[in-house]
């Protein structure tokens, strides 16, 4: 049996460990923190929105992202497929037209249709775009679920609070899913800071992620159930960790308030900040260096891209497969070493 060490128990590491274990490999998951999901996955929006992401991402992100819908909705049944709504304030009609021009698989809704879908937004927006095939999940719930599945598998060991550099080399393969921390090996990696918050309100009922477009203050709201809402997220070219600024929070809450005035009275449950790992083109990569495979550069698309990358990683290990859409020629050369 092939022995694989997976480094990092964020969304990429857990998905990879899960896919490899299901393929029958012996998996050792190593995480330096005392529990899983302690990095940027914890603060993710959890929107499985391949078509909305086309607004600023390359088509490859949407096509890999469609595999994530299958994984989270069908295979694990942990995501809700209720679609995504995109709205804009009255003076930002051009933003909505531009968003529609860049994306696909949506329906145009008028005020009445929007009111039927989300009664609490009735009368607040004249038009909306609706992406019915998209889904959303609660990232922490999804990570817990994966970790529990791994616990049940006899061919998986999970080791938390362990420094991987102190261990003896892995027997067959190492799959490095450490995100921004892998910068020690992947020099071209950069960090893009994000800030988010979680609010609670019993007055607000939303059934699906709402994105509000604005040239300066775009925002999205993801319902987490029981009156909890995740509001995100800033995008700042900056690598500092865990520092939430007043300005970012004011802007995020202000935009949430523009979607639903009851957010003004919501309780602030949590604020969070971390660094998204990205390459220069903001696209993900599988990088093979001898017997180490790096999965990185998932940027703002951790939950959207991790399943497709994990499945490709498994085939690289098992079949020496090559995937030109996420691997470069250097990785091809290594396969013959």
């Amino acid at each position: 049996m092939m022995h694989v060490r997976v480094l990092g128990a964020g969304v990429a590491g857990l998905c990879t460990a899960y896919v490899l274990a299901r393929a029958g490999l012996s998996v050792e998951l190593i995480e330096r923190m005392p529990q899983h999901g302690a990095g940027c996955s914890r603060y993710a929006g959890g929107m499985i929105a391949p078509w909305c992401e086309l607004e600023s991402a390359e088509p490859i992100v949407a096509s890999l992202g469609q595999e994530a819908l299958e994984f989270w909705v069908e295979e694990l049944a942990i995501a809700t497929r209720a679609g995504t709504l995109v709205v804009a304030p009255p003076r930002q009609g051009a933003e909505l037209i531009d968003f529609a021009r860049r994306t696909s698989r949506f329906e145009n809704l008028d005020a009445a249709a929007l009111g039927q879908l989300e009664p609490q937004l009735s009368g607040r927006f004249e038009t909306a775009l609706y992406y019915p095939q998209e889904a959303h999940l609660d990232p922490r719930q999804a990570l817990n679920f994966l970790a529990r599945q791994l616990e049940k598998m006899p061919n998986v060991t999970q080791c938390y609070g362990v420094d991987a550099t102190a261990l003896a080399p892995a027997q067959d393969w190492t799959v490095d899913c450490r995100g921004f921390l892998a910068k020690d090996h992947l020099r071209q990696l950069r960090g893009v800071k994000g800030e988010m918050l979680i609010l609670h309100s019993d007055e607000i009922a939303l059934s699906r992620p709402i994105r509000m477009l604005h040239p300066r203050r775009p925002v999205y709201i993801v319902p987490r159930g029981a009156g909890y809402f995740m509001i995100g997220a800033t995008m700042i070219e900056n690598e500092e960790r865990a520092r939430v600024t007043a300005r970012s929070i004011v802007e995020l809450i202000n935009s949430a308030f523009a979607i639903h005035p009851a957010f003004a009275e919501a309780e602030i449950i949590e604020t969070g900040s971390d660094v998204r790992p990205a390459f220069r083109d903001n696209l993900p990569q599988l990088i093979r260096r001898q017997k180490t495979l790096y999965i990185n550069g998932l940027y703002r698309h951790g939950f959207l891209l991790a399943p497709a990358l994990a499945k490709r990683a498994a085939r690289v290990l098992l079949e020496d497969a090559f995937f030109p859409e996420v691997m470069n020629a250097d990785s091809r050369e290594w396969t013959s070493v």
Binding site: R190, E237, E240
Partner: peptide, 15 residues
């Protein structure tokens, strides 16, 4: 905005 607390925008600036 990129300045942050500890000149952590450095990698974008050096780019």
């Amino acid at each position: 905005r990129e300045a942050g607390g500890t000149r952590s925008g450095e990698s974008f600036w050096s780019f």
